[in-house]
Structures are given as C-alpha cells and as structure tokens.
Nucleic acid binder design. Structure first.
Length: 119
DNA sequence: CATCTGACGACCG
DNA sequence: GCGGTCGCCAGAT
C-alpha cells in the first residue's frame, strides 16, 4: 500500500523522540496532508515493530481515541517521555455559570461532514 | 462503481 | 480558548 514510506519513516524515529502527523505528511509530501499520515497510522498493522505511539498530534497532543491512548501514554512514558496532562474533563463537567453552554451528552459524531455531505 | 469514514490541521467567528 | 468548516484521499462496505 501507499503507506510503506510512512511506516519506513516512523520506524526510524529513535527511542525517546516523537514526531507529529503534520511533520510526517510534510516530510513525505503526502497529498492528503496530516490526515493522510493519520490514516496511515490507523492502518498500522500491529506486530510489525512500527512505533506508532511515537507519532502525536501537532503540539504534542495525543489525539487518538481509547483504547490506544492509554497504551500510547504508557509506552511513551516507559521510553522516558513524560506526559503532561492535568486538566479535568472540562468538556463534559464544566458548569458554565448562569447560562452559556449546556453539558448535554451529545456525541461529537466526529467532525460533522460538511454541509453538503450530511447523512 | 458509489458512498461513507475518518490516529489532522489550518482557519474562522 | 472553543466549536464548526474545509481540504484531502486510501480502505471498507
């Protein structure tokens, strides 16, 4: 598949270092941009020795959903990379005084498809 | 073959 | 800072 170059690069990330999807995409000139790099990781076949956990979002943010997220944190920490993460889950627990936002349980249904593409 | 789906990120209000 | 939109395109159905 066309992910080969991506995997090859990711495999070269030295222990204790990380990179971002955007950087990856840029380095490889992926036409789809960071997103394509992301898909490449999502399609990463396990057991191939590909250190997918060393690829994070721009700014060092961990974007992947569970159950990978916790695994990734664990692996990175075991490599000596501290994860700074304090902050409560404001998104779901913040009570906006008075009015403002409502904490409804609405799913974020990932990024809503653009207006034309609704289902 | 047609559609839907996103491990993103830049931009805008 | 936060939520929504847009571009982009390889797989899965």
């Amino acid at each position: 598949m066309s992910w080969d170059p991506v995997y090859r690069l990711v495999k070269q990330i030295p222990r204790g270092r990380v990179t971002t999807y955007g950087a990856l995409a840029k380095a490889l000139r992926l036409r789809g941009g960071a997103r394509t790099a992301g898909r490449a990781m999502a399609a990463t076949p396990p057991g191939k020795g590909i250190p997918w956990h060393r690829v994070v979002g721009e700014g060092g943010k961990l974007l992947i959903p569970e159950p990978y997220a916790s695994l990734q944190r664990k692996m990175l920490q075991s490599e000596g990379i501290p994860i700074l993460e304090f902050r409560v889950d404001l998104k779901t627990h913040l009570w906006s005084l008075g009015s403002s936002r409502k904490p409804s349980v609405k799913q974020k249904a990932s990024r809503a498809r653009s207006t034309k593409r609704r289902r």
